[in-house]
Design a protein around this nucleic acid. Structure first.
Lengths: 147, 147
DNA sequence: CGTTATTAATTGCTTTGTTAAGTTATTGCG
DNA sequence: CGCAATAACTTAACAAAGCAATTAATAACG
């Protein structure tokens, strides 16, 4: 009845990644909980703050969101007046998203808590190990399997 | 108009983790696409195969799913006859989930492709680096911030 | 030009994630 | 014992992910 498992996955990369996402983003969600922006909107705000106005395809790529999700999120953020959207005059298919002053203010309201959070994480985990982890993750994401 | 960004996030752990999830699980989703099980059901099957029958709370923990999600997923998997559920006689709040023969068969049908996939990833990324990455992720997940 | 292909964004549909509230069973304790 | 507290799900409600199909604008090219 109890055959041996078909595969031993004592160490599973997918599961470890899922857990890590929760470990890291759980506290961020908590920090944002009372602010009207969630994790995804927060990523959009941060990307726009860092990169300046972007078309939606690039924004989706940088914020790790699918275009359909971004469309819906931007609709809400537009209504919240956190961003504005304008058709690109040079290519009227494109819509350029710009951070509003209110959007910038939301970042300002949470950036200290956010930094503190990641500094605590870095202190607990070790700054050097954090560097290594980031290096490895970025390399992994460059690793393509079309070999 | 263009003040400097409120924070420079050239290297963002959350974004790197999200991308890694996509890098790793994208091919797995593709592999499973024609099989009637998705990523989450696959995780449930694998955990049950590896650990044997489990109550739902433990299963949720091991498969990285929330209980409400697991409830719905198990309902579907029960209808697909991939698992069976039975009330624990010692604690009738608990429901013990068991892998069915059909469920085991689904694993068997994909385990080779799955292993090949991760071996390709390991070959491209480097086995040693993969070990390091797993170590770091597992440590990160043990790092708690209640300090 | 004009027709076809491609690209950017949106919409529709189903499943999952997240939070909170509700059920039923068990435990703790006065 | 009896009653409050806790635990294991379940249900509900809404946002988001994922995928396919659609619309609108631009590019490619015969």
């Amino acid at each position: 009845m109890s055959k041996t498992p078909l595969r031993q996955t004592s160490r599973s990369l997918p599961i470890a990644l899922l857990r890590a996402r929760e470990t890291v983003m759980g506290p961020v969600r908590e920090m944002l909980s009372a602010s009207g922006v969630n994790e995804q909107k927060w990523r959009v705000l941060r990307v726009l703050d860092e990169s300046g106005p972007l078309d939606q395809s690039l924004l989706a790529e940088k914020a790790c969101l699918q275009l359909p999700s971004l469309t819906r999120i931007l609709k809400a953020m537009d209504e919240q007046a956190l961003v504005t959207r304008a058709t690109d005059p040079d290519d009227r298919r494109r819509s350029i998203v710009t951070l509003s002053e209110a959007g910038r203010q939301v970042i300002e309201d949470h950036v200290d808590a956010n930094r503190a959070l990641f500094q605590r994480l870095e202190a607990a985990f070790g700054a050097e190990r954090m560097e290594t982890l980031l290096d490895l993750l970025e390399d992994l994401n460059r690793t393509d399997l079309k070999g």
